[in-house]
């Protein structure tokens, strides 16, 4: 009790997520045309390690703690912290690349803990994933929801900062993408 979300909250998230997807689709062409800064070098679609570093950052990907000797603030060093899913970045990805990056990140998550930058990228990629989904995509997002459920089951504190993000992921997969057997029930 206290860990799983109410039906009302879930319905609100589905509604909000639907609006976000509509907005992304509406403005995709605009953001796709924007130039990126020179430091934003996106990996090739089949570069799995490159995408993990790009999205999650070298620190998390390599389990490196920020050292006191860093001259650049970790919060501003996207190479170390991971690039956020800016619209100008994610709008440039093809559907096949979106699916591939989802697979890379979910694969990473199978062996690692849930971190904030992972949540942001998963949300952004799911927001850009066009429906109807391919069977492979259905399988992938179901894997994500199951992994989120497993991590959530190990949480000991309702105030754990991961809880709300895990609930959000499960809700989006189960309610928005209609994998109803995975939905949290009241």
């Amino acid at each position: 009790q206290g860990f799983s979300p109410s039906l009302r909250w879930q319905q609100q998230q589905v509604s909000n997520f639907s609006e976000v997807r509509q907005s992304v689709a509406k403005h995709r062409q605009h953001w796709r045309a924007q130039f990126l800064d020179d430091n934003v070098v996106m990996p090739k679609p089949d570069d799995e390690d490159g995408w993990k570093r790009f999205c999650l950052g070298e620190n998390v990907n390599l389990d490196i703690s920020p050292s006191e000797g860093d001259t650049v603030s970790p919060g501003l060093d996207y190479v170390k912290m991971g690039f956020p899913p800016f619209l100008s970045i994610i709008s440039k990805l093809s559907q096949s690349t979106i699916s591939a990056v989802l697979e890379y990140l979910i694969s990473w998550f199978e062996e690692r803990d849930f971190v904030p930058q992972l949540g942001r990228w998963l949300y952004a990629l799911l927001a850009c994933l066009e429906k109807p989904l391919l069977p492979e995509a259905h399988s992938l997002i179901r894997q994500l929801a199951r992994r989120c459920s497993a991590v959530r089951a190990d949480l000991e504190d309702k105030d754990d900062e991961r809880l709300s993000a895990l609930n959000l992921m499960i809700c989006i997969v189960a309610r928005y993408f209609e994998q109803n057997d995975l939905a949290d029930k009241e």
Binding site: W9, F17, H27, W31, Q34, F86, A127, S164, L168
Partner: peptide, 30 residues
């Protein structure tokens, strides 16, 4: 009006990030 809010959406490169953060916070508030 609606036109201004649409323009602000266009110019906000961080819209997806904000939407995610807002969703996460909403559960804590609930």
């Amino acid at each position: 009006g609606a036109g201004q809010s649409e323009d602000s959406d266009i110019w906000d490169d961080t819209a997806l990030i904000k939407a995610y953060d807002k969703a996460v916070v909403s559960f804590k508030n609930a």
